[in-house]
Design a binder for these strands. Sequence first.
RNA 1: GGUGGGUUCGUAUAACGGCUAGUACUCAAGAUUUUCAUUCUUGCAAUGGGAGUUCGAUUCUCCCACCCACUACCA
Length: 546
Amino acid sequence: MKTRVRFAPSPTGPLHMGGVRTALYNYLYAKQNGGDFIIRIEDTDSHRFVPGAEKYIIDSLRWCGIIPDEGVDGQGNVVQTPSERHPHAPYRQSERKGIYRKYAERLVENGMAYYAFDSAEELEKARADAEAAGQTFIYSAATRKSLKNSLTLPADKVGELVSGTTDWTIRFKMPENETVVMEDLIRGHMEVNTSTLDDKVLWKRADELPTYHLANIVDDHLMEITEVIRGEEWLPSLPLHYLLYKAFGWEKTMPRFAHLPLLLKPVGNGKLSKRDGDKMGFPVFPLKWVNPEGETFRGYREDGYFPEAFVNLLAMLGWNPGTEQEIFSMDELVKAFSLEKVGKSGAKFNPEKAKWFNREYLRSRSDSELAGMYADLLGSKGIKAASDRILKATAILKERANFVQDFWTIAPYLFIAPSEYGKYGVDLAAADASKPVDPRAKTYDNAATFPFLAKDAEKFWNEDNGRMADEAAAFITGSGVEWTKEAIEQELEGFIKSKEYPIGKVMNCLRLALTGSASGLGIADILSIVGRDELLKRLEYIRERL
RNA sequence: GGUGGGUUCGUAUAACGGCUAGUACUCAAGAUUUUCAUUCUUGCAAUGGGAGUUCGAUUCUCCCACCCACUACCA
């Protein structure tokens, strides 16, 4: 039998990284077994529907390289693998609403379910009363005999109510005192007694829609799903789902189940939630999301993560290959993945490790590809620079950065000149082309400027050091040396040593002039990129200011 | 409260019932370097507690503790 798994999100908001991981594991499992990965939209809750959420979910998965064989494509189209036996479309439960009622009624006819006429208010009251008495109300074998339903009302009254205008539901008639024996691909053998379970609503007259439980089982059956891989939050409803398959007589084709451990927040307890990211400074969503209230949530993509890195770090959260390999491409994941190696306990997300993954991917990218991204980044700051300069800078910067954005923050001085003294150091906010700080900035790439770090200036600059730096600069710019990092390094060092100048002091003065601070790239690296003239200009400039 | 699930360094995890409990991230120290970073080396750091089975328990069983999920006409 062909493997068919599905990811079945509810379009009630953006998909967070835990959801992406669930989709990923489903995808990996499907591909590993030569099967199909299906996306089904579970939009049976008309009240919680959020416009744009479905598209967001599909876009996110596509960014990750998780492409469905069947389902919706986010553009209003249906993706479907040809099946001679069954048409599986549509893939939105709202578009399938016509098919569920007869299944629910079949259960009523079999005596496995019943009509319930209690109003929301009545149930609310029953719950409140129970709570006041220190108890918990559940609609179950113990209570259904005293409630308004087709088990307690005369048949003619039931018929009247069902065809009437007042709302009603179909509830599953949970068996009394039976043990449900379950098998989970990750957790193994489990048992639960049905007396602790309640009579779940399967179908709602109010909106003519099934609830999750019914729609899920019916669709998984109709779509010939072979494995259900979903979050641990579904574990408590597994017995219900087993019973539902049994009630329909579908036991032999019932899918196997695997319940994934939850993703936990980095600090403290509890599962990762939407708000954690902004509180703790990392994204929880794959892509940026603006909710209907206009609130913005950051995304991994916008934070500069490569999709491959994001997929890789997600894969390693709750699963391990059993070897010490940590970096996996999607293809490698497909080969190595196994549900047996998925852990049982919740995984705390570690943002530091996430950055490390991105760094690994950054370093494995070619210089030319990174240079293209770097050029775009510079462009967004209003800086245009020759591509060979950008390429040279890329080679140096990629060893020091976690993200392409870091190329800018690590060394803005490669493309703009430092200007004034700043008490707080290099102010990158001020280094924005839209607000030039110093007219002199126009002399260099037409970009903005950023301030010197005053305390560094005081520390390194004095008459002697300044004079030696000037001498060194005059030598290197006038020597006709080949303008490469290696040659500059050799010549400059040779000159300073031949003069018996303190190399650290001279170099630091040059760095101060060049970068505006006491730390940064190697002098030769910087010079090879900014050029002779710029060295002289920046030295002259710092002298004027001091 | 009830039901279910879980518990190895700070975090992610490894360890047919059997070496000194391994690896990665973080952190610290040292080396390298003109500074910073990189790189390299070294180091810190864990089986929640108690019984039991066993020659031997991180691993199997039970009890306790703690954590998590679920407990809607939501998914």
